[in-house]
Write a protein that binds this DNA or RNA. Structure first.
Length: 177
DNA sequence: GTTGAGCGTT
């Protein structure tokens, strides 16, 4: 009964244990590699994802760390929370969200702007928050529920041509001395 | 090295 009604505030204060940890309060200069080094102490990782600002390309100061095993993520959560990293005291918690938001679904999700007339241009009927489509496709975050590690490509994606596997060249920046 | 708090659409 303690937190069963699923209110947002409760979920935030008390996220369920998960293999996905949110790491907050990072230095802008902490990289995914750094986080890997730290968090892989507690067990094998499935992924690390620093969130970058889309405009500036810089870190937004938080990240998500995916563990393979729940027991490891639990330990990491407890041991790494409050740890100092790159001069910052970081906060580690089970992530509320599991995955980045689903990109544009490809179909229009907004409310029909049907105003019966021709002038549909202005459209400034959006008061207050002007977040993405009024966050209209948050409903697609149900994808978050499923663990991508278990996903298999069941049908060949048109975006992956088997003839693409030639340019394997990674762009590792060579060290300059 | 532009803080703070911040749960993600490269």
């Amino acid at each position: 009964e303690a937190y069963s009604h699923g209110g947002d505030a409760d979920v935030r204060a008390n996220p369920d244990p998960s293999t996905c940890l949110g790491v907050f309060g990072l230095s802008l200069y902490t990289t995914e590699r750094d986080l890997r080094e730290v968090f892989s102490r507690y067990g094998p990782l499935a992924g690390v994802n620093v969130v970058y600002d889309q405009r500036t390309g810089r870190s937004r100061g938080f990240a998500f760390v995916y563990f393979e095993r729940l027991e490891d993520s639990k330990e990491a959560m407890e041991r790494a929370n409050g740890m100092e990293l790159d001069g910052r005291r970081i906060r580690v918690d089970y992530s509320i969200t599991k995955r980045p938001h689903t990109p544009t679904p490809g179909i229009y999700m907004g409310r029909p702007t049907h105003n019966g007339g021709g002038g549909g241009g202005g459209g400034s009927s959006r008061r207050g928050r002007d977040s993405y489509y009024d966050r209209g496709y948050d409903r697609y975050d149900r994808y978050d529920e499923y663990d991508y590690r278990y996903s298999r490509r069941r049908s060949p994606s048109p975006y992956y041509s088997r003839y693409r596997s030639r340019s394997r060249s990674r762009s590792y920046s060579p060290r300059r001395y």
